[in-house]
């Protein structure tokens, strides 16, 4: 079993009287993409801030790359990369200047900004001011900035939020490449499809607590219902949709009787989504 990139032990954090994170425990393995899912205000951003040393937990311990993040903040930050939900680039500087600034802060020698910009499909705009970029371009540049020091852990906060499908897909490809390079990825997102596609494991956070943590496959196995959706045509010519729950003793009989008694137009299976599971566990959706 690979060692932990991140180890979080029962951490808590409060903003005044607001208890944002209430004793959460989890770990992220090396080379793992870990999805951290929850609605707004659930404690995702507070957790990321604690993991990246921006704020310190009031209780509990965080170990990142084997170091206590509260004691060796600078050393931890030198080996991680963070891409924020809010676009926080220097708009009056060019793409190259933005990347070089952070490469200098990280002390990266022989830094090739053009190569990194080509990787995120921003070649040709290297010398343009960021203020002239579209949201998708800015998002890609933020990701490139998070990669300047070839981080061992990549923290991505809503990396595809508000992007068109092509841009979002490009970013997902880069995330997978980073995993291949050897980085662990801590990913927060509202996009359940994205989390499902990318994550090795996901944690659901709700009201400051982790309410479920497992691989998407196992969560679906454990909480989700598999269905067969059958569309039939009645004698009067009307279309009717019927749902049959799979994995039940009566499933085969129900399917057989449908085919025998009615004219089947379409049939397909359907798995529960992570969103369905989140709603099932917490009683509310992720986008609220």
């Amino acid at each position: 079993m690979s060692p932990d990139a991140i180890n979080v032990d029962n951490i808590e954090f409060s903003y005044g009287n607001v208890h944002a994170v209430k004793g959460i425990t989890f770990d992220v393995k090396e080379k793992e993409i870990f999805g951290f899912l929850g609605p707004n205000g659930a404690g995702k951003s507070t957790t990321i801030k604690m993991l990246t040393g921006q704020i310190f937990p009031k209780k509990g311990k965080i170990s990142v790359l084997g170091m206590d993040v509260t004691k060796k903040t600078g050393r931890v930050q030198a080996r991680i990369g963070v891409s924020f939900e809010q676009t926080n680039l220097y708009e009056q500087m060019s793409a190259v200047e933005n990347l070089k600034l952070f490469a200098d802060l990280f002390g990266v020698k022989k830094f090739d900004a053009d190569k990194l910009l080509a990787m995120v499909d921003l070649h040709g705009r290297n010398r343009d001011h960021v203020s002239t970029f579209s949201k998708g371009m800015k998002q890609r540049l933020m990701l490139a900035r998070a990669l300047v020091n070839q981080p061992e852990i990549l923290f991505l906060d809503e990396p595809t939020e508000g992007l068109d499908p092509v841009s979002a897909d490009n970013i997902r490809k880069i995330i997978l490449k980073e995993r291949e390079r050897g980085a662990a990825v801590f990913l927060t997102t509202h996009d359940m499809m994205e989390a499902d596609k990318l994550s090795d494991r996901v944690a659901f956070i709700h009201e400051g607590k982790i309410v479920a943590l497992d691989s998407p496959y196992h969560l679906k196995q454990k909480f989700g219902k598999r269905l067969i959706k059958v569309e039939t045509e009645t004698a009067s010519g009307e279309l009717k949709e019927t749902e049959i729950t799979m994995d039940e003793p009566y499933t085969a009989d129900d399917v057989r009787s449908l085919f025998a008694e009615e004219k089947v137009i379409t049939i397909h299976s359907e798995e529960a989504s992570l969103e369905d599971i989140f709603i099932q566990i917490t009683g509310r959706g992720l986008t609220g």
Binding site: Q54, Q77, A78, V82, F84, L89, L105
Partner: peptide, 14 residues
């Protein structure tokens, strides 16, 4: 305002 400080604070800068 633009969050640049936040980005700086997750680098080795103290």
């Amino acid at each position: 305002e633009t969050g640049n400080v936040q980005a700086l604070m997750v680098t080795p800068l103290t």
